[in-house]
């Protein structure tokens, strides 16, 4: 039996009167890549934020490696060291250079040795092609470069799993690829991940399982080839149609006949 890194039971989350997640259940196996898609406002980003304790939940339970992280006295800073998170907006610390950004967590929060972490950071930076920018400040980097550094910063904490919250949504189109390639690489290495994205082609390529959320619940959960080819519900079909329509529109705008189906 595969081991579950993350188990979510009957999760309820509301903002004031408005409930955005209604009793959600989800298991994530070790090494599994779960892509969460759905219309905006469906609660997918909120779901990630609940897992990382950035949003308090109203009901239900979340287990990380079998231990509850929602009941009893939780040391969130320790939990968060096991769950890496990358946000949509470029969230690097502007007053620190790339290396300092990466080292802050491992040195201060985890109390690890500088030489050891620095060597790891350099290896990770080299992997995402940014070793030569380790002394740069965030303001000197492009959006795509900043997101790659943010990923390295999270990885350097040696997390159990990674959460990606629409990490390419504010990037210029030509920079989306360089960030997604890094995430694809992580998937190949067996990193457990939950990814919220609107990049459908990427979702198809990276996911072991696609979760379609709408109205605060999981509407469909299936392997990507099943979900994208034969969605089971009307809601999922409608959602996927809007993307196809968008692609068609895009092709018309670009006046590129090759890309029409």
């Amino acid at each position: 039996m595969a081991q579950h890194v993350l188990e979510i039971r009957n999760l309820h989350k509301s903002f004031g009167e408005r409930e955005v997640i209604h009793g959600l259940d989800l298991d994530v196996r070790k090494g599994e890549v779960v892509v969460v898609i759905g219309p905006s406002g469906c609660g997918k980003s909120t779901l990630l934020r609940c897992i990382n304790g950035l949003e308090p939940i109203q009901q239900g339970e979340i287990f990380l490696n079998g231990k509850s992280i929602t009941s009893g006295k939780i040391k969130w800073n320790l939990v968060r060291q096991q769950i890496g998170m990358v946000f949509q907006s470029y969230d690097l610390f502007p007053h620190m250079n790339v290396m300092e950004n990466i080292l802050l967590g491992p040195l201060k929060a985890q109390g690890r040795r500088r030489e050891e972490v620095e060597a790891e950071a350099e290896a990770l930076l080299a992997r995402v092609g940014l070793l030569d920018r380790k002394d740069s400040f965030p303001s000197q980097l492009s959006g795509g470069q900043k997101q790659r550094v943010a990923i390295v910063r999270a990885l350097c904490m040696k997390p159990e799993m990674m959460l990606f919250d629409e990490v390419t949504a504010s990037l210029d189109p030509e920079m989306v690829r360089e960030v997604l390639d890094v995430i694809l690489g992580l998937a190949d290495e067996g990193m457990t991940m939950m990814i919220v994205t609107h990049e459908m082609a990427f979702a198809k390529a990276v996911a072991d399982r696609v979760i379609f959320m709408d109205g605060g619940v999981v509407v469909e959960s299936a392997r990507p080839e099943v979900f994208f080819e034969t969605p089971q519900t009307e809601r999922a079909r409608k959602f996927l149609n809007t993307f196809q329509f968008r692609e068609v529109r895009h092709c018309l705008d670009e006046d590129d006949e090759d890309c029409l189906p």
């Binding site: 990382n52 304790g53 950035l54 969130w76 800073n77 320790l78 968060r80 060291q81 769950i83 890496g84 998170m85 946000f87 969230d91 690097l92 610390f93 802050l104 967590g105 201060k108 929060a109 985890q110 943010a150 910063r153 999270a154 904490m157």
Partner: peptide, 9 residues
């Protein structure tokens, strides 16, 4: 939030 997410107190 990004400070918290790297486990800072």
């Amino acid at each position: 939030e990004s400070g918290l997410s790297i486990g800072l107190s």
